[in-house]
């Protein structure tokens, strides 16, 4: 049974006990983020003999973090709601393989396979960037991102967050296209690149990436992209990105389709 997490101190005791035993984990627990979820009343946990499941509850979806003791796997487990879980790995699934098999046996299905591309920083880059500007219209950015990315796998910022990102200069745009990045220290991550269907095949993606690299090019840049999105991969490779070994499988459990099964 899922129970709401009401105290970070209680949760951290459980996390520490598991850490001491050695765990396979799909996301690093971060105190600040967990406390924020607890304040919102959106963090739930399920203790299992093999470890701990943490759920971040959203309106229509639960997002799952697991800590499974090394050498063990996930037990048969029925999610209460539509649930998404991401399994990141480097080079090979390794210890994640058995856990992924258990999720699939539970009724999860893979909805996205992603890989990460990296590009070493270079000084004095000067790519063509056409009419790319800092985005000032967070509403329009939000619309285009929502049209372009899945609400389940898209990791989309909310409109309020986009307004903040625009103020920070982390949204670049031109008519029909938007690019969102995050940046800290010596690394930067291209988070979202979207071009409206009516504006595709005009090189807008290249102008946006070019402008982003002109601004951030001395930093190590990373981008996650769908394995099957060959046009995007070709675009990034054109700018010098290459696969760095990190991959992830996104698994989804749909309550509706489960109930439809005979």
């Amino acid at each position: 049974m899922l129970s709401p997490v009401t105290s970070y101190e209680e949760l951290s005791k459980a996390l520490n006990t598991l850490l001491l035993q050695g765990v396979v984990i799909n996301a690093l627990p971060n105190r600040e983020a967990l406390e924020q979820e607890i304040r919102r009343g959106s963090l739930y946990q399920q203790q299992i003999s093999e470890g701990l499941l943490l759920i971040r509850r959203r309106e229509t979806l639960d997002r799952l973090t697991f800590l499974i003791k090394k050498g063990q796997s996930l037990p048969l487990w029925e999610p209460e709601r539509n649930t998404v879980v991401e399994l990141p790995f480097r080079n090979a699934l390794g210890a994640m393989e058995e856990i992924e098999a258990a999720f699939l046996a539970t009724g999860f299905r893979e909805i996205l396979s992603r890989l990460r591309l990296s590009r070493k920083g270079t000084e004095d880059v000067s790519f063509p960037q056409g009419a790319v500007r800092l985005c000032e219209d967070a509403q329009a950015a939000c619309r285009l991102l929502c049209e372009s990315f899945s609400p389940i796998t898209g990791c989309l910022p909310e409109e309020g967050e986009l307004a903040e990102l625009a103020k920070q200069g982390k949204l670049l745009s031109l008519p029909g296209g938007i690019l969102h990045y995050e940046s800290s220290g010596k690394t930067t991550e291209l988070r979202h690149l979207a071009v409206a269907p009516t504006h595709r095949r005009q090189g807008l993606g290249a102008l946006l990436v070019g402008a982003y690299l002109n601004q951030q090019g001395e930093k190590l840049s990373r981008v996650w992209t769908a394995v099957e999105n060959l046009p995007a991969r070709r675009l990034y490779e054109h700018f010098g990105y290459a696969a760095d070994g990190w991959q992830s499988h996104v698994l989804y459990y749909s309550k509706e389709s489960k109930e439809e099964r005979p």
Partner: peptide, 16 residues
Amino acid sequence: IDDGLLESLDIVMIVT
């Protein structure tokens, strides 16, 4: 970390 050489998941592996 600042250079992005270590990932958060590397940290978990290293800690254990």
